[in-house]
Amino acid sequence: MPAISRWFIKAGLVYFLAAMLLAIGLKAQFSFPVLRFLAFFNPVYYHLLTVGWITQIIMGVSHWMFPRFSREKPRGNEALAWLVFVLLNAGLLLRITGEPMLALNPGSIWNTLLILSAILQWLAGALYIRAIWPRLKEKP
């Protein structure tokens, strides 16, 4: 398994763990008022699972197992795959921080983090498609 796939998959596992811990916290807030602030993490929970865990696992496994791009460059542009990894994780981490902080402090500077997060995650998605599309080749 190439290094970038290992990073995608291990990062995905970390997000999965974080999502499960957050799920416990989201339930526990009803019994422990001190945890009420976790209600602002609800959208973060869904994105930890769908972007951090599932999408990232898909990206890592597809980079590893999809048909080869060419004999010389079997996995196509490796640098592009690393860029996708950095953009996706930076975007997600900015969201994890910025979204609850903005909800707790409306109208504050935290919105900058969300703007950056939206742009970085969108770029990650677009560049992943750019990287993987040429490797989708028909072979019965």
Partner: peptide, 23 residues
């Protein structure tokens, strides 16, 4: 390929919604 097209549209919609949350 269809899934990748949905990824493109879905991430674009998500990005717009997140931008709208920020500003």
């Amino acid at each position: 390929r269809t899934a990748l097209l949905y990824l493109a549209i879905g991430f674009t919609l998500g990005g717009l919604i997140l931008l709208n949350k920020a500003v």
